Amino acid sequence: MRPFVGLIFLWLFSAPLQAQTDTIAFADTVMPATSLYRLNKTYLLSYFTDLPKVAVSPVHFTAKNWRNTALVAAGAGALLLADKKVFELMNANRSKISNDVAGVVEPFGNKYPPLIIGSMYLAGVLTKNRKMEHASLMTAKSLVFSTIFYTATKQVVRRRRPRFTEDPFDANSPFEGGREYTSFPSGHSNTVFTVATALALEFRDTKWVPPLVYTIATLTAVSRLYENKHWSSDVYVGAAIGHFVTKALYKVEEKKARPKLYKLD
């Protein structure tokens, strides 16, 4: 099944890339081929230089950015209050079909992303398609960065998973407790939304790509609720971290491409 998934995604994203292999677009910025990443020293060093920039990106937030941040925080707060109701709703509406769907999409949150990224990179190298090669490396870097942020959050917010308690406010002290106290935020949701956001940005000119990847990401996130692995607010915040960390990284790359015209919006 895993090789099949990799081939499907490789086929889906290869067609849009064939048309333009020498440039990549960031909003109103077109980067030349020399700006596209390859697996070399420059790319590896960019992990160390870009991570701090992503971490401090809120310093450059505009009023619109802060408004969006407030809306995300409000949504997380609302779900926190509704966590138990959502938990009960999920457990009261189980069926064979929903079981099957959850089983199909769940691996997109942990097993499939490395396969998808690796397949894209290998195809880019073998076909000399620089844009596909760059897309795979950017997705990989986005995933590493978002994983750092969500795992650090898990260590501080030691929330108990719903399969061990019916109290959504059951938590331990920071850095204390075992794996059952790693509910917040959802790692699967973070991972799948990181990859979905990166692919949506890389292939924004192909209209069907963003709806496809975000649909898969949403179903994967919901599957974590269905399987009692996370509370709804865990899933929401995990998805938000993956999405916004990835967008922040792409803004960093855009700034490097056109520093004088760069504007964070």
Rank of each mutant, 00 (worst) to 15 (best):
I24V: 13
S46M: 05
V104D: 00
L45V: 03
T23F: 08
L219E: 02
A217R: 05
G75P: 03
V56P: 00
S189R: 02
S189Y: 06
L81I: 15
T29H: 10
G109T: 08
P32G: 10
T197A: 05
D28N: 13
Y250R: 09
L17P: 00
E180T: 06
P52T: 14
T62N: 07
W208C: 01
A135P: 00
W11K: 03
A76F: 15
Q155V: 00
A74C: 03
E254P: 00
D167I: 10
V105F: 15
A217L: 09
F175Q: 00
G103M: 01
V125D: 00
R130P: 00
M1Q: 10
L17A: 15
V237S: 08
Y112W: 13
A25D: 10
V105T: 04
E202L: 03
A200H: 09
Y112D: 07
K251D: 13
L264V: 08
P259V: 15
A33G: 03
V144E: 12
D100V: 13
T29A: 07
L261R: 14
T69A: 15
G238F: 06
M90N: 12
L115V: 15
K84C: 01
H60M: 06
A19H: 14
D28A: 13
P174W: 07
T218C: 01
R179E: 09
V245S: 11
F203P: 00
V59K: 14
V192P: 00
D234Y: 04
M1D: 03
F244S: 10
K260Y: 14
A140V: 01
G6Q: 14
A217V: 08
V213E: 01
V125W: 06
F203S: 04
